[in-house]
């Protein structure tokens, strides 16, 4: 009796404290998203909005070759970048958590965190400086006499976008994996070895499945935002490397077709969420299978 009364007052207190931040996020995120959704069903002719319901924007998004190409290209780049970053981040996080001596961990985390917070724009731009026609790589190679004309395959294409994005998102992928690995009870590893596992078997049966939540988090943290990246394709992508975010911007700003832009944005969000959902589902199946094996 007393306990339930206590719970009620706790719940009231919790609700009253959360109400303000929740209201803020509903007002500035949920409501705008809903309006964006509404907008995607309207049409715009220069500056006037026609608010009759239509699916034309979505139809155009999914059938017009240019949008479809951009969408699939964004997805492809995003997937490659995610695989690259998570693939490189995993051994780094593994080193930090399981190999590095304890007194060096904080320093390593700090090292990984610094680029995390330095200007994203500058970090992307530096790759333009490195890979561009007159950039560090080409300029230096010509200056040193290795080549006569700039290498054109290293910049203003999808390759450059992938390299740049992977580099920019690497630290974001390391930290979640590291945090989860740190939580893995070290006696699990000893127990596995004690029960006859070689270090490799132990990694496959214990470390990998137990660090999977970190891999999932890293994957989502990298995959979802990169599909909507605007800066990188604009700076190092060239015409061949443009992605869906650049088209969204054009629709909202230059083309004055906000409804189409909204449809593009929401379609991209839908696409990325479904792929992420499938990934999370596959991961569950993997974990189940690993337990059963």
């Amino acid at each position: 009796m007393i306990k339930s009364a206590q719970l009620d007052s706790d719940a009231r207190r919790g609700l009253s404290q959360i109400s303000l931040p929740l209201a803020f996020s509903v007002l500035l995120l949920a409501a705008p998203l809903a309006i964006l959704l509404a907008m995607s069903f309207w049409t715009q002719d220069f500056l006037t909005l026609d608010r009759t319901f239509t699916l034309a924007n979505f139809k155009e998004t999914w059938t017009s070759p240019i949008y479809r190409t951009l969408m699939l290209r964004s997805l492809k780049i995003s997937i490659i970048v995610t695989v690259l970053t998570v693939g490189l981040a995993y051994p780094a996080a593994y080193y930090m958590s399981f190999v590095a001596p304890n007194n060096r961990k904080a320093m390593l985390v700090f090292l990984i965190t610094i680029p995390f917070w330095t200007s994203y724009l500058m970090r992307i731009f530096l790759w333009k400086v490195i890979l561009g026609f007159n950039g560090v790589v080409n300029g230096s190679l010509i200056g040193l006499g290795f080549i006569d004309t700039p290498l054109d395959w290293i910049s203003y294409n999808q390759f450059a976008v992938i390299i740049t994005l992977s580099h920019a998102w690497l630290p974001f992928a390391v930290l979640p994996i590291f945090v989860v690995m740190e939580k893995v009870n070290r006696s699990y590893l000893e127990a596995a070895q004690d029960l006859g596992d070689t270090p490799f078997q132990r990694f496959r049966r214990i470390t990998l499945p137990l660090s999977m939540p970190g891999v999932v988090a890293a994957t989502l943290i990298v995959f979802i935002p990169t599909i909507g990246d605007y800066v990188t394709p604009k700076l190092v992508g060239g015409p061949d490397g443009l992605m869906i975010a650049n088209m969204i911007e054009i629709q909202f700003k230059n083309a004055n077709n906000a409804p189409l832009g909204a449809a593009l944005a929401l379609s991209a969000l839908l696409l990325v969420s479904s792929v992420a959902g499938i990934f999370v589902w596959l991961n569950r199946r993997y974990l189940k299978a690993e337990g059963a094996a």
């Binding site: 959360i18 931040p21 929740l22 996020s25 509903v26 500035l28 995120l29 949920a30 409501a31 705008p32 998203l33 309006i35 964006l36 907008m39 989502l220 943290i221 979802i224 935002p225 990169t226 599909i227 909507g228 990246d229 605007y230 975010a245 969204i248 911007e249 909202f252 906000a258 832009g261 909204a262 944005a265 991209a268 969000l269 990325v272």
Partner: peptide, 22 residues
């Protein structure tokens, strides 16, 4: 709901707020 912006592409946030403002 509160943590969601961490996982959303920033362009989605930018565009949706822009829509409301417009």
């Amino acid at each position: 709901a509160i943590m969601l912006p961490m996982f959303l592409p920033e362009i989605i946030i930018g565009v949706s707020l822009l829509t409301v403002v417009l």
